[in-house]
Amino acid sequence: MQISARRIDKITIFDVVGDIDLANSPEVRKALLKELKESRVPRVVMNMSKVRYIDSSGVASLVEGLKASRDVGSRFILFGLSPSAREVLQLSRLLKIFEVYDDEAQALA
């Protein structure tokens, strides 16, 4: 998995490529928490369009990001969910908890 960050105005976009599982979910968590808690970016967006698979530890990292965003008053947004990622969020009843969009244009609007 690779994670990289882009900045557009006051928005940070994380582009994630590859599967998120136990081997790399701590990396996702660390990147999210740094941006939300330390840098206090008002909007953090996760580009999930190239994430084919996410496991429960990956979902836990996203939940931590969501909680951190609520703590600091930021928005935490996901877009481009694969069928597998969407199923996992549905199974964990989190799909309606996250702010989810189909594409980047919607996520940045």
Binding site: S56, V59, A60, V63, E64, L66, K67, V88, L91, S92
Partner: peptide, 12 residues
């Protein structure tokens, strides 16, 4: 119904 990290693997 709790929104917190962890504890999801067995549900899946």
């Amino acid at each position: 119904d709790e929104i917190k990290p962890g504890g999801l693997g067995l549900h899946f």
